[in-house]
Amino acid sequence: MSKLKIIANGIIKDNPTFALVLGMCPTLGTTTSAINGFGMGVATMFVLIMSNIVISAVARFIPNKVRIPSYIVIISTFVTIVQLLMQAYLPSLYETLGLFIPLIVVNCIVLGRAEAFANKNTVGDSACDGLGIGLGFTLSLTVIGLVREILGSGSAFGLKFISGDGVLAFVLAPGAFIVLGYLMVLFNKFVAKKE
């Protein structure tokens, strides 16, 4: 499999949100605006790439029975690094994303890719997989955030195009579920069919 194919797979065929349906908590919780969704996606992508690289490099040395705890420690280390860096250099984004940054640890995507891909592939391929899945996740989150922002606040990427509020429900919890549900329907109808 070529590296490009691996990356493309992560974006469409194995899209973590719409095809694999993994990592739903941050997908719903942080997509109140396109920027927030994008920020969360990038943070997750960083953790994914780094943990994929490290795990594929050390997987050979880890006894099978302590596999999962070892992966969790490695992943949570990178999550904490992201957390500290964000706090230092992007404090306002850190505040908005809040609790969901440490929760990247239990994002099933990261552990899932470690188990399903990184521990049986080379470092290079694993990095590409992390990048592809990460891009797919970022893209999905940005799209969901954008739709919710347009409908709910009448703005796109923070730029307001109508005065006043949009349909508030879309910024609130119910809107998250409903927007994701309908986007998934569209994905099933148009994208998944082509594959």
């Binding site: 349906v21 809107g175 998250a176 579920f177 409903i178 549900g181 309908y182």
Partner: peptide, 15 residues
């Protein structure tokens, strides 16, 4: 999943 999500959305509205 899609119909489950939409259902959950309506439940969230009720809550």
């Amino acid at each position: 999943v899609p119909i489950a999500l939409i259902t959950a959305g309506i439940m969230a509205m009720a809550f």
